[in-house]
Amino acid sequence: MTYIAIFLTYVFINNFILVQFMGICPFIGVSKNSESAIGMGLAVTFVTGVTSAICWLVYYGILQPLHLEYLETVTFILVIASLVQLVEMVIRKISPSLYKALGIFLPLITTNCIVLGIALINITNNYNLLESFAAGVASGLGFTLAIILMSNIREKLDLTPVRKSFRGVPIAFITAGLMALAFMAFDKSLLSNLHLV
């Protein structure tokens, strides 16, 4: 697959939030205002990109030569947890202003399904190192797109009258459902129509 095809697949066709339901918890939890949504989105994109590449290296450099493929889940989650910790420390040292913006979101990312999900999907799809990195960045951007759209809708929703039992989380889910309906327009045939497959 070309890099454009990978990009389109993970941002639109297989958008992690709206099609595969990965990372729903931060999507509902952190989408109350658009500033924190952007921060969360950028932090996730950064982490998915880096972890995709490193997990690929760990899988093909360590696990496969030693025939330990069955340990991939344990290894990947450890890599992700320590990497998130490392990223947090590096950002705090290099750029305190960026740390202020992203800091509170970083610890949450370890348990974000997208990060582990894309690392495992890269291995299942037999991507090479660069393709894995591209898929990681694209899936993070897909998350960013969805969460920014959602936060803008929710800021407007706050000003509209909603029945008491629907207020908050239920209406957020229904909004996400309608967004997912719109995203169904992006189909696998998009790739073949653009002659990318």
Binding site: L18, Q20, I171, F173, I174, G177, L178, M184
Partner: peptide
């Protein structure tokens, strides 16, 4: 996918 999100809401 949309059905799952709507139903959950």
């Amino acid at each position: 996918a949309p059905g799952a999100l709507l139903l959950m809401g």
